[in-house]
Design a protein around this nucleic acid. Structure first.
Lengths: 151, 151
DNA sequence: GCGGATTTATAGCCTTGTCTAACATTTCGC
DNA sequence: GCGAAATGTTAGACAAGGCTATAAATCCGC
């Protein structure tokens, strides 16, 4: 879940102004900390939906990382209460994890639909959406959504 | 510099398809590795432009981190050939660093103008642009640019 | 139901990014 | 031009995210 902080941010000006951007960096770094967790829960939800279970080996293949990396990250997600797991068993989302997954999927869908409705090819749209979805505010999402639904 | 890889990516389908997204993750992780460097060189260029020099203390204040963190990161950027520095002196961009900064600023401007032209308030636009700019492909940038310039 | 193949876990290493504390240098006011 | 304030560096801690190598458990074909 992005925490969507509303730090102080002076008005925009055309010509440079470092101060302008200062506050933004905090929010970006905050969002970055959550990106990986969001990717995981979203993917786990998808795997469970698609194939009935989420196995580390499939998660690893999907993300393009090695299984031990997944294992370690799952430990963290478990510590953070997003998933539950038992040794040598596949992974499940907690209530909280499911909520986060749903939220992520919603954002992903909106960004993807928006990019495609803008005229982007679906492959590029998918790649860009994956990166962008963690960094769009609720306000921007609303605009994206409205645009995609325009007449 | 985003490396803008063009990995294999199957066609989009409305209803889930993990494979779809698989390739996207590689690109996202690649982009993530460069984000911080991009933030730094862009900010350094801005500081030099605005106040004639880029001092660690100002970089730290702008990014919202502590000075030693900046110092360590500058070491890395120096190793990577993006900046030059001398002990207790302020920081300069190399030719390569300047090119990257220019490229980053271009992306930032396009994304920012686009968001504002979509109807987003400037403050939120700035925050979102900061996060989004590292994840937009050239193709998307072209569309953003065209949209912002529409009649 | 055994044994090999697959999957999962663990240990250990590396890098990056963050911090604090302690020390060094430079800058600046007077 | 001296000394205090500001700035910069270094050292060391810690977490996260990645890897390889090795060990353990599960799964499956026969």
């Amino acid at each position: 879940m992005r925490d969507d902080p509303h730090e102080a941010l002076p008005a925009v000006s055309d010509d440079r102004s470092p101060d302008l951007r200062v506050g933004a960096f905090q929010g970006v770094r905050a969002a970055r900390r959550n990106e990986l967790a969001e990717d995981y829960v979203e993917l786990i939800a998808e795997l469970i939906h698609m194939q009935g279970e989420a196995r580390p080996v499939d998660i690893a293949a999907s993300l393009g990382v090695k299984v031990p990396t997944v294992s370690k990250t799952l430990d963290r997600l478990s510590r953070e209460g997003l998933i539950t797991r038992a040794k040598y068993r596949s992974v499940f989302l907690t209530e909280e994890g499911r909520a986060l997954a749903k939220e992520c999927r919603r954002r992903h869908e909106i960004v993807l639909r928006f990019l495609i409705s803008l005229g982007l090819d679906p492959e590029t749209a998918e790649r860009d959406a994956e990166g962008i979805e963690h960094h769009v505010s609720e306000r921007t999402l609303a605009l994206f959504s409205a645009f995609a639904n325009r007449s």
